[in-house]
């Protein structure tokens, strides 16, 4: 695991369904210090901003709001590629506390892709008003990652969220992300493909997740993976920041 040097800001990604107050959270976190960044290859505008917390700098990227990460559409691919290839130091999954069940699907997918995840139960005030009670500690132990309750539009829980994000980014919280067990048949197939993926990419990409996508027959995944390989083979030192090993 790599840690940014002192000057390098931690990179935080915000993922979540549309309409979960993700952008509100983004604005609350970054205040007015935000600008729009343009990601290479796609003309998709992801808002990008910074904040400072306890003497450290954080770059926050607001990923497109999506229901899944299966590359059904261009914006899902952008969100997927960012989490998969840019490997943010922490991915905050923003969930609408008033409809947790539907929102949890995306969280489970992110947990299959990354270890450093913080669940943000947003709009908790509204949930309470509607008489919905969520056992956050139980949820946290189920999912194996920290859960923070927030109400972004009133700024509630933001400080707590920042604290937890810092501790996950620094590796001071050990996570044990919930991994879904599939049927025996699928698990066997995953096993056989997973090792080959590790042969190619080492342990830098979530091999189990990629195996699942390949079993899904997702061609766009194959192309995205291929695009990543040339960087790795580049002879000069230009690829130092690439998250892939030079030798498999």
């Amino acid at each position: 695991m790599k840690y940014p040097s002192k000057e390098m800001p931690y990179r935080i990604a915000l993922a979540g369904n549309p309409n979960t107050g993700k952008s509100t959270l983004f604005n609350t976190l970054t205040g007015l210090r935000q600008h729009t960044g343009n990601w290479p290859g796609k003309t998709v505008l992801c808002a990008e901003g910074e904040y400072r917390f306890q003497e450290k700098n954080y770059t926050v990227v607001d990923l497109p709001g999506t229901y899944s990460l299966y590359s059904n559409s261009a914006d899902e691919e952008v969100a997927r590629d960012y989490i998969l290839f840019e490997q943010p130091d922490v991915t905050i999954v923003v969930l609408d506390a008033t409809s947790l069940e539907r929102n949890l699907n995306l969280a489970l997918q992110v947990l299959e892709m990354s270890d450093r995840v913080v669940i943000c139960l947003n709009m908790i005030d509204e949930a309470i008003r509607k008489g919905i009670r969520i056992h956050d500690q139980k949820l946290s132990s189920k999912l194996g990652v920290p859960v923070v309750k927030t109400s972004a539009r009133d700024g509630k829980g933001i400080n707590e969220l920042k604290k937890i994000v810092t501790r996950v980014a620094e590796g001071r919280i050990q996570t044990r992300p919930y991994r879904i067990r599939y049927s025996e048949k699928i698990e066997e197939k995953i096993q056989s493909i997973q090792s080959q993926i590790e042969n190619i990419f080492g342990d830098q990409l979530p091999s189990r997740w990629i195996a699942l996508r390949l079993l899904d027959g997702e061609r766009s995944m194959l192309n995205a993976l291929k695009k990543r390989i040339p960087k790795e083979g580049a002879p000069d030192g230009a690829n130092l920041k690439s998250p892939y090993p030079v030798e498999a």
Partner: peptide
């Protein structure tokens, strides 16, 4: 999985 987790952690008044 989502459903079974929610059944355990969410309570409606």
């Amino acid at each position: 999985a989502s459903k079974s987790i929610c059944d355990e952690v969410v309570h409606y008044q």
